[in-house]
């Protein structure tokens, strides 16, 4: 499978990365280089193989659950402290039209 320029633009848009028109060609070539190399996976017979999920070496253990208690929050200032555009008690973003 080889990516065309339109697909590269669509993926960049999906990933929210601004891609200037003059960068599309370079990105396309690099991605196709990597994807071409990845293509060798198709040669592996994976019939009936359960896909691995998670990184645990012996398969994933069951999920531990925490008790339902309020142990966090109450720190609006700390949550907002790193914001590039703090608006009082809120994060500010350009107006969103729904």
């Amino acid at each position: 499978m080889s990516l065309d320029a339109a697909t590269v633009r669509r993926i960049a848009s999906l990933a929210r990365i601004r891609l200037e028109e003059d960068e599309v060609g370079r990105m396309q070539a690099e991605l196709n280089g990597i994807l071409g190399w990845i293509e060798q996976l198709q040669a592996v017979d994976t019939e009936g193989v359960e896909p691995m999920a998670g990184g645990a070496p012996e398969g994933q253990p069951a999920m531990r659950m925490r008790e339902d208690a309020v142990t966090d929050g109450g720190q609006a200032d700390a949550v907002l402290a790193n914001a590039p555009d703090r608006m009082g008690a809120y994060f500010g973003v350009p107006k969103v039209v729904e």
Binding site: D85, G92, V93, P94, K95
Partner: peptide, 13 residues
């Protein structure tokens, strides 16, 4: 998102 707090911004809670 609150859209009515500011003329050009939305506020996020």
């Amino acid at each position: 998102s609150l859209h009515d707090q500011h003329p050009t911004k939305s506020f996020i809670d």
